[in-house]
Design a protein around this nucleic acid. Sequence first.
DNA 1: TTGACTATTAAACACAGTGTTTATTATATT
DNA 2: AATATAATAAACACTGTGTTTAATAGTCAA
Lengths: 189, 189
Amino acid sequence: MRSAKDDRRVKYTKMVLKESFIKLLSKKDISKITIKEICEDADINRATFYAHYSDQYDLMRKIENELLENISSYITEFAKKSNNFNDVELIEKIFEYIKENAQLCKLLLSKKGDLDFQKRVMMLVYDKNLIDLTNEGIFSREYADYIYSYTITGCVGIIQKWLEDGMDKSTRFMAEMIIRLTTYNNAPK
Amino acid sequence: MRSAKDDRRVKYTKMVLKESFIKLLSKKDISKITIKEICEDADINRATFYAHYSDQYDLMRKIENELLENISSYITEFAKKSNNFNDVELIEKIFEYIKENAQLCKLLLSKKGDLDFQKRVMMLVYDKNLIDLTNEGIFSREYADYIYSYTITGCVGIIQKWLEDGMDKSTRFMAEMIIRLTTYNNAPK
DNA sequence: TTGACTATTAAACACAGTGTTTATTATATT
DNA sequence: AATATAATAAACACTGTGTTTAATAGTCAA
């Protein structure tokens, strides 16, 4: 069962292209990065780039999706190993992951990054693991949807600030704060 | 006191360039929009574009700043006219402005827009007019900063959802919800 | 290790858009 | 009406794009 995806050459090509792209992204905005430039840095033929990606934005999107998958399995792994954990610990895991992968995360989760992607990261936690506000009957349906949006984007803002400040607060401090801020008890039925 | 800014020709040039750019932006991503394309649509010489803007991102930034100023004066105007108003009414004004300028606001405030700009819009309200959480002594300084980030970006998320849903909730409904969500009473000193 | 497979390569291509300059024309302001 | 200057058309060299070609080199399964 031979697949191009498993070919060492392909793996190498994609790896170095991603590395060079990230290196460039830390220096300038994606709109100013050219494909020629990425390929020269990676020492990969330009035609080869086009065999895998349509442009720098496509490459970016694929890096984002990979990060998303990595965070997801990181959390799943944690949930499997420890059979007794609470919400704070789970959210702490997210912060730990970000800290361990700070270089990339700083680029993708900063205020210059793509908000839609950042929301998806937050949804990883909230969709699967946290209290469903509607089911608890605290809020009406129409309220719950808005609260969900508020919570998700609010958390994005928190993480951005944490990254901007050089991640000086502990992961535990952050996780506890998030839990506190996202637990509402002051809205009408 | 003659200034190039006041020249009718300049005003016209800038106006049609902005119009064409916004028209294009509603059809495709800014990264796919070329200066040649903008100029052809606006029927303006390309050299003239460069006399005013460095590229499409520069043009975008200037449109954003203008919108920001317009919202700001819209609010100031309201505050001047009515000598008795509360926070809900003030926030309602923001929603009203967005509704009145839906075409542009949908582009700049949507999830594809620039988060940093969107935060600045939210700060217009929060910095000047709403309760200073720290001063009230409810939160410690380090908490207050994070709560501020959470609140600002959270509000961005709410407005995005409102726009995505076709602004079907009333401006009053939205304003009251925002007030309710951004009034915290469950954090430690 | 061999042989089939295929990813990568260098080179070339036409093409589109960039950013700037030049002399000329058109318009605005006082 | 005179002066100032914004906008223009045309041309420029240049950079990057996306694709194609035939040759090369690396990979994997038997």
